[in-house]
Write a protein that binds this DNA or RNA. Structure first.
Lengths: 202, 202
DNA sequence: GTCTATACCCGGATAGAC
DNA sequence: GTCTATCCGGGTATAGAC
């Protein structure tokens, strides 16, 4: 971890180190000492910038979520269904490649009941989800794709793409690969897009 | 938790309590005292039966894995592809309904790099997986279903079904439901079977 | 085999000098 | 804002009576 010159850079390097530690060890298992060492700062300095371990954890989650919000905001449903699903699948697989650790941390938080981001789920994810369901329903009424359950269709796309980030260890082991590189990501999004669009008669 | 009369029943109730605690809090976050309280035994008794916290955790994982091995062993690939995929999807959704906690615990372990079950992955999951891939490839060569990547097809089915166990909190919230009951499970496996079989031209 | 009491350690948080 | 030294609570594991 590079030395930070400004306060912002310092906090960014602490957040990066914390993300890795929290994902690898869980909230309770994470050690402030290891995070501090990885970011090259004394433990007390870390606690000066982020009041407590819990606050640091929440800051990590917020950083991840805001970066995702940016990445998905230009996915408008105004376009063609085919283009929309292609973009969505490609963006999610790309996110799994670029930052699997973020996806894992988010997943672990949800699995434990999402105690630290129930607000975000209610206020951000739920409205986005309802919006998508309405648009897809409309497309189905217009006969532009095969009629199925729109909500479960979205779950299917989420699950299929996130799997490559969250279960990367298992996926790589079963495919006899060492790392999740760009070529593997391209093959994966091509497979998923082709299979899911075929299932939608697109 | 009911009082145990035999040693086996005692250990089973400890394992059940431990599964809940480990899934909710993670390995490091789990507290032996809470597990002991939930199982109605003193903490020292728990440590007498299972040497250490880590050993208890591994015992929980082994119990889950052996119950899964039993549940899936009669899914032979000798039958019709349609019947096979129908059975597989139904069995996995049913497992998600019956014991979502087990699925979550397994998922968390994989996400953290599977340090306590890399042996099981290599010796049990990998052979099973290779076998399934071969059978599906054969079916595809015979033209009995649409040709795609067999490995990623299996990942897709795993991801799609496990999602309802691992992300149950999020799924229920977005569907405005309180609990994952049998009706919801039936609708879900029907959706998944219909969608995936359609995507395979079955 | 079961339980009470306790040893021992580790980690989050703070005090206070610089 | 940064860092050293330290406090203190809590949790695993064990010792030893029954």
């Amino acid at each position: 971890m590079a030395n930070a010159t400004t306060t912002q850079e310092l906090q960014a390097s602490i957040l990066a180190a914390a993300k890795e530690e929290f994902a690898r060890e869980g909230l309770k298992g994470a050690r402030l000492q290891r995070i501090a060492d990885a970011a090259n700062v004394p433990k007390a300095t870390l606690l000066y910038h982020f009041k407590s371990k819990t606050k640091l954890y929440q800051a990590v989650l917020e950083t991840i979520l805001s970066s995702w919000d940016q990445g998905f905001e230009n996915l408008t449903p105004q376009s063609d269904p085919k283009v929309f699903f292609n973009q969505l699948i490609h963006a999610k697989v790309q996110a799994a490649l670029l930052d699997p650790v973020a996806s894992k941390l988010f997943a672990m938080e949800i699995m434990q009941g999402a105690p630290h981001l129930s607000n975000h789920l209610q206020q951000k994810v739920k409205p986005w989800f309802r919006q998508q369901v309405l648009v897809i329903e409309q497309w189905m009424l217009e006969g532009r794709l095969r009629s199925t359950d729109p909500a479960r269709l979205i779950f299917l796309i989420w699950a299929a793409t996130q799997h490559y980030a969250d279960f990367q260890t298992q996926v790589l082991s079963l495919m006899n690969r060492q790392e999740f590189d760009q070529a593997l990501a391209d093959e994966t999004s091509e497979f998923l897009a082709s299979f899911l669009l075929h299932g939608l008669d697109l």
